[in-house]
């Protein structure tokens, strides 16, 4: 889930498509979609249908972190850094 949140946070506030997220995170579709569904249910991810970029193509489902999801991603990233003991510049 953290990998997915990091990938979404890196693209925030932009929207990402499911297959692009798979490639970015290395998650398989069987892991990615249940995670996206759960995160959407929890209000961490927004999902919407986007109009096709070219004629004849279908609309695609796109995802991005909500404000709550973004806060959680930042908290998770900070906690990860603190636990790994790596010092970051202020």
């Amino acid at each position: 889930m953290l990998i997915l949140m990091e990938a979404l946070a890196a693209r925030a506030p932009g929207w990402c498509h499911g297959y692009d997220l798979m490639k970015a995170t290395g998650l398989l579709s069987g892991t990615l979609y249940p995670l996206l569904m759960r995160m959407t249910d929890q209000g961490l991810v927004d999902a919407q249908w986007q109009a096709p970029v070219s004629a004849g193509r279908p609309a695609r489902h796109a995802y991005r972190l909500t404000a709550a999801g973004l806060r959680l991603a930042v908290t998770g990233r900070d906690a990860g850094r603190a636990s790994s003991g790596v010092a970051f510049p202020a």
Partner: peptide, 21 residues
């Protein structure tokens, strides 16, 4: 949403793995 993304997976020759997942 998954069905639409299958087209992207097909373009990458990963349709079967994507669908099975």
């Amino acid at each position: 949403a998954m069905l639409v993304e299958l087209e992207a997976a097909e373009a990458d020759d990963r349709a079967l793995g994507f669908a099975f997942g």
